[in-house]
């Protein structure tokens, strides 16, 4: 194989998800009436903001060679914390701050702190006590959701403070601010992962932890930080979720974890760690959202979405295996 062909093939493999996204959008636009509209595309981006933000945190941890199953429950707990404090109906306490806009930074800080603390707990157990990431975060997935149920008593909080709701209503170039927050996060973390020593070290840790340890990189600190970031980012997605639904319910966000996994894997992040980049993950998120929108527009019963998502996860993992094999042949 000539070097040029190899380069071309590698470029295709690296950006496969973007090609898939364009292909899927083209097919849907051609086949589904009313799909090809700016409003629909804006809707695809808007609907993917919560999932998108959550996927960033998950991707960081997976790229560093680990796993975090707790992101969905963490997001729910952050959303519930914000909901209980700043909602005025249901179980909401309706706390009023003066000036009213102060509720924005306070609620955001609360959501980030809740997520970051759970991330720290996960990270400490996994990295310092050296327990298995899968089991620890599975446990967190369960107990954090348990806390959501316990503090809410199974009831919900409604009517989020208008100052916070503002982010869902206010639009900039046709997109609500919540979507811009997601896009901003993707740009920010893409730059961090690709251009800074921190990102480079995370990728290298995911590739060969022993080598990075021998090279004097503080692996423990980096990995714990990755878990804290994943938690805090999940907290941010919970904050967005509370804004989107103007409150919080006990079963908020159930099923998001598997969508996030699907997005991350479809986006080209290998579950073995060390491979993948965040722009691809965003394309994966958009791809899922595009498919959801298509299902809605075609009027398929919503009960089928779960089946389709399940098969998407399966397809994503198959794709991952296939790509790994192809790369080995290239090597």
């Amino acid at each position: 194989m000539t070097p040029r062909m190899r380069k071309l093939l590698e470029f295709t493999l690296d950006n496969l998800v973007w090609f898939m996204l364009v292909f899927v959008l083209a097919v849907f636009s051609a086949l589904i009436p009313n799909y090809f509209q700016l409003g629909i595309f804006a809707n695809i981006i808007e609907a993917s903001s919560v999932l998108g933000v959550m996927s960033i945190g998950l991707a960081l941890v997976i790229i560093a060679g680990h796993m975090d199953l707790s992101v969905e429950s963490v997001a729910a707990l952050s959303a519930m914390a914000v909901g209980i404090l700043f909602c005025s109906a249901g179980i909401g306490l309706g706390i009023k701050l003066t000036p009213a806009w102060l509720a924005v930074p306070v609620s955001l800080a609360l959501a980030l702190a809740v997520g970051g603390l759970i991330g720290l707990f996960n990270g400490w157990l996994i990295v310092k006590v050296k327990m298995n990431a899968f089991i620890i975060t599975l446990a967190s997935y369960i107990w954090v959701r348990g806390i959501v149920l316990a503090v809410s008593g199974g009831r919900s909080a409604q009517d989020l403070a208008p100052a916070i709701r503002w982010f869902a209503i206010q639009r900039f170039i046709g997109l609500p601010l919540t979507a811009w927050i997601a896009i901003l996060c993707f740009v920010l973390f893409s730059v961090i992962m690709a251009k800074t020593p921190f990102g480079r070290h995370l990728v290298m840790i995911g590739g060969n932890e022993t080598a990075t340890y021998r090279a004097g990189i503080r692996v423990t600190r980096y990995l714990i930080l990755a878990f804290v970031l994943a938690g805090a980012i999940a907290g941010l997605s919970g904050w967005l979720l509370a804004i989107r639904t103007s409150g919080a319910t006990a079963n908020l966000g159930i099923g998001l974890l598997f969508n996030a996994f699907a997005a991350v894997v479809i986006g080209g992040v290998s579950l073995k760690g060390g491979v993948g980049a965040l722009p691809g993950v965003y394309a994966g998120v958009l791809l899922l959202s595009a498919i959801n929108t298509a299902i809605n527009l075609m009027g398929l019963p919503a009960v089928y979405t779960q089946v389709i998502h399940g098969f998407l996860v399966l397809a994503a993992v198959l794709l991952d295996t296939f790509k790994t094999r192809l790369r080995q042949k290239l090597a």
């Binding site: 800074t196 020593p197 021998r214």
Partner: peptide, 20 residues
Amino acid sequence: LSLCTNVDVVANFFMGRELT
């Protein structure tokens, strides 16, 4: 054991000592 095969030659050469 001393190289990260998932990154390029330059990244490996400067592992932990990156110029910024």
